[in-house]
């Protein structure tokens, strides 16, 4: 065996293969970038150069044409921008939180069917207080309190409650978990509660539910279901609450309330 190593043979192979590759690329480019976009004719950019740029994938900013405005205040909270709490935030938050103790308990554990805040995710508290303040969520009790807080106050309070030791939760066996909590209801678009609320995974802004009063959870799910409460981002929670039956709401509420062993 030997290698055919004449300059002519080398050149022939190189030029032939480069030529084939070039022809392939050029012809598919012309078809894909020029011919197809122009015959499709659905392109909003009229001239040829624009349509080539479009076909090549040059990004353009989505245009918003006269959207329908909402009839209620919407949440202005961008969940991803929550910075880390400063070191002295917890101390300042403790002072502000004195006014919260009457409902939410001096240690953040409520005796009045208000939510327990001790050990709650800071982002969740921040979002709700901001929404009370902006009017995206309204409550006869909470709205006046929130109206007097600055953005920094809200961060501090959130940091303080997140810092407190959480409600003790007994680890109930999987057997005791109602189906709606453990599995959701896939074809009604209900994911397992824990996939956002922390036992499987926590999504920014979703509260920890373990040990929350049953009455509070029931009231909120009902409020989401009928659209009284609308501060969930892009209907995230309304989509789920609307699909839950009265029984399922009761089961979920009872289950989460039961995770508080003291039965407060």
């Amino acid at each position: 065996m030997s290698i055919e190593k004449t300059p002519a043979s080398n050149r022939a192979w190189a030029s032939a293969s480069i030529a084939i590759a070039a022809v392939l690329f050029m012809s598919s480019s012309i078809l894909g970038l020029v011919v197809l976009p122009s015959v499709q004719g659905t392109d909003p950019f009229t001239n040829l150069w624009d349509s080539i740029c479009s076909a090549a994938g040059l990004p353009r900013r989505a245009s918003s044409t006269d959207p329908v405005e909402p009839d209620h205040k919407i949440s202005r909270v961008v969940l991803s921008t929550m910075p880390k709490a400063e070191a002295d935030s917890v101390g300042r938050g403790a002072t502000i939180a004195l006014q919260c103790a009457i409902c939410h308990g001096p240690t953040g554990v409520s005796r009045a069917d208000s939510p327990n805040l001790a050990g709650q995710y800071a982002v969740a508290i921040y979002k709700q207080l901001e929404d009370f303040r902006s009017g995206a969520r309204s409550s006869a009790v909470m709205s006046p309190f929130a109206a007097n807080l600055s953005d920094q106050d809200i961060r501090d309070v959130a940091a303080y409650y997140a810092y407190l030791p959480s409600v003790p939760t007994n680890h109930a066996s999987t057997a005791g978990v109602p189906a709606i909590v453990a599995y959701g209801a896939p074809l009604r678009g209900i994911a397992p509660c824990g996939s956002c609320h922390g036992s499987v995974e926590n999504k920014a802004g979703s509260p920890w539910l373990g040990g929350q009063p049953s009455a509070y959870i029931t009231a909120q799910l009902n409020a989401f279901a009928v659209g009284i409460r609308t501060n969930d981002t892009s209907q995230q929670m309304r989509n789920i609450a609307r699909q839950m039956s009265k029984d399922e709401i009761a089961q979920a509420a009872e289950y989460y309330a039961s995770l508080n062993p003291d039965g407060l």
């Binding site: 499709q40 392109d43 353009r60 989505a62 959207p67 329908v68 961008v78």
Partner: peptide, 24 residues
């Protein structure tokens, strides 16, 4: 055929402004 244009949008403010606001 594939969409003709690559359009970009800020996903963090969808719920506040633009065409993907809840009411739209």
């Amino acid at each position: 055929m594939p969409q003709t244009t690559v359009e970009i949008i800020n996903p963090t403010t969808l719920h506040m402004t633009g065409e993907f606001i809840e009411s739209n």
